[in-house]
Design a binder for these strands. Structure first.
Length: 482
RNA sequence: GGGGCCGUAGUCUAGCUUGGUAGGAUGCCAGCCUGGGGCGCUGGUGGUCCCGGGUUCAAAUCCCGGCGGCCCCACCA
């Protein structure tokens, strides 16, 4: 039998739970016949658009402007930065033919757009007066991934990429702080997704970057997910693309660049995974496509009109107050069916209105996050909803933070590291800093990866490496990842 | 790239071993009945059994090839 609801528990079988929520809550349709390419349904797109809007607002507040660059990048651009090509080449899709004609030079579908942006930056940047240049685009990118998972690893996925150019390295480094703050404001404050902002080890940098910083969150199965990244590109691309300016001192200089990429797909995946429960999605008000749903309940035809009349009044009042409200007056479904369905879809607030409510001048208000009902007087409904807007987000943040913190443990010995990784934890530990040690750890623990150090971390003497016992120079976080 | 599993109405699936009229549930449509936690009844609708070839009187079923999907390993800024 094809169940309409979620049939597994999130804590027991996260992978299956996640697949079921995506399909059953009407977020995606995975029947499209190309692996790794996902059909995004309206419920998902509305959530994604809300998340995009938050990031775009923050970016524009800090001086970024929107642009749209071409999807295709000629091979000659792509080849200019050696390390960049080597890193991305294995997963680039190429356009090689148009109609029956073979193209003289093949075109890459952007896997990321440095080589499109910076080609133009060499034209646009001439003077110190042109700096800083801060542009972003909200687009999909293309990578031929082998193991795909909807919203987590795709061959086509949605993100924002902000490409900034500065006169000095110092300004570029400040930009990385600003990017981190941007992530904090949106990912944590608005969406309630906790994360660590880490500086990646040298062997795990973006291809072509001097340094990579990234936000890692922890999924319910304990694996970490990189949800945004910021790269200090130094002057490497500036040199490859000849992006120079005449400074105040009359000297021609290369610009310093950064690139910030909040992974909208993955942030959405984290939102679904972290806040969801065994009944389905749980959405904060600020991204919910429908914030308040009204379900009318009547037994007799004679009660129908007075119940519906009250529902319509409430609907108008709530809409007037600025909320996205939907009166579910469909007659082909029972109230019980609707309760389950809207919970599956994660609508934060449900109002139940029947004869009882009509006669007492009240509304039964159901909170999706706590799954509790309470009676509220009609006259206090709007202020109650306003309060819930904040309360629900705070509750989601509280739970998410509690989970996140419970998943990070410290270790100083090899056995502790092994045990922690086995039980799905992220490990904070002293580390020697050697790539060979990280490789050995990864192999021995079936995938435990050194994710990096905290951004303000200073190297020093931290005793012995928890893995190999050599003198430790760093404190790092280690976890299995997606 | 290596290994494994699997393709039957929108969905989940029976049938395949042992070749012989494709069956059920759910969904969808119509009508009734209902409604405070996924109601019930009646009727109807919906199939290139992934594609191509082979064997056979006869193929969803057996054989070969292809395509597609899923899982594990490797890879993964």
């Amino acid at each position: 039998m094809s169940e309409q609801g979620i049939t597994v528990s999130k804590s027991e079988d996260f992978s299956e739970w996640y697949s079921q929520v995506l399909s059953k809550a009407g977020l995606v349709d995975l029947r499209y016949n190309v692996q790794g390419f996902v059909v995004h349904k309206p419920w998902l797109m509305r959530i994604i658009k809300a998340i995009y809007r938050f990031f775009e607002e923050e970016l524009e507040k800090t001086g970024h402007e929107p642009v749209l660059f071409p999807l295709v990048i000629p091979e000659e651009n792509f080849e200019k930065e050696k390390e960049h090509v080597e890193g991305f080449k294995p997963e680039v899709f190429w356009v090689t033919q148009a109609g029956d004609e073979k193209l003289e030079r093949r075109l890459a579908l952007r896997p990321t757009s440095e080589t499109a942006f910076y080609y133009m930056y060499s034209y646009w940047i001439q003077s110190w007066r042109d700096l800083p240049l801060k542009l972003y685009q909200s687009v999909s990118v293309y990578r031929n991934e082998k193991n795909t998972r909807p919203l987590i690893r795709g061959r086509e996925f949605l993100w924002i990429e902000a490409h900034d150019a500065f006169a000095t390295h110092e300004e570029a480094l400040n930009q990385i702080r600003e990017d981190m703050e941007n992530s904090r404001k949106v990912i944590w404050e608005k969406l309630g997704i906790p994360f660590l902002f880490l500086r990646r080890p040298p062997w795990d940098k973006f291809s072509g970057a001097e340094d990579t910083y990234a936000a890692d969150t922890i999924m319910p199965d304990g694996r970490v997910l990189q949800i945004s990244s910021t790269h200090d590109l130094g002057q490497r691309f500036a040199k490859a693309f000849n992006v120079t300016f005449l400074d105040k001192d009359g000297k021609r200089k290369y610009v310093w660049q950064t690139c910030y990429g909040p992974g909208i797909w993955r942030i959405t995946a984290a939102l679904i995974a972290i806040h969801g429960d065994d009944k389905g999605l749980v959405l904060p008000m600020n991204v919910a496509p429908i914030q308040v749903v009204i379900v009318p309940i009547y037994y007799k035809e004679s009660d129908k009109e007075r119940v519906l009349e009250k529902c319509r009044k409430l609907e108008a009042m709530i809409r007037e107050a600025g909320y996205r409200v939907y009166l579910d007056a469909r007659e082909e479904y029972t109230p019980g069916w609707k309760f389950n369905d809207w919970e599956l879809k994660g609508v934060p607030v449900r109002l139940e209105v029947g004869v009882r409510e009509v006669e007492t001048g009240t509304v039964t208000v159901f909170r999706r996050d706590l799954r509790v009902k309470e009676k509220v007087a009609d006259s206090e409904l709007i202020s109650h909803i306003r309060k819930l807007e904040n309360d629900i987000l705070e509750e989601l943040k509280r739970r998410a933070k509690e989970f996140f913190e419970s998943r990070i443990v410290t270790a100083t010995r090899r056995e502790e590291v092994e045990e922690a990784l086995r039980s799905g934890k992220m490990v904070k530990m002293p580390f020697c800093g050697r790539e060979e040690c990280a490789d050995d750890l990864k192999e021995a623990t079936d995938g435990g990866k050194v994710r990096g150090t905290e951004i303000d971390f200073k190297e020093g003497d931290y005793g012995r490496c928890a893995w190999c016992g050599a003198p430790a120079r760093l404190i790092v976080y280690v976890a299995k990842s997606y």
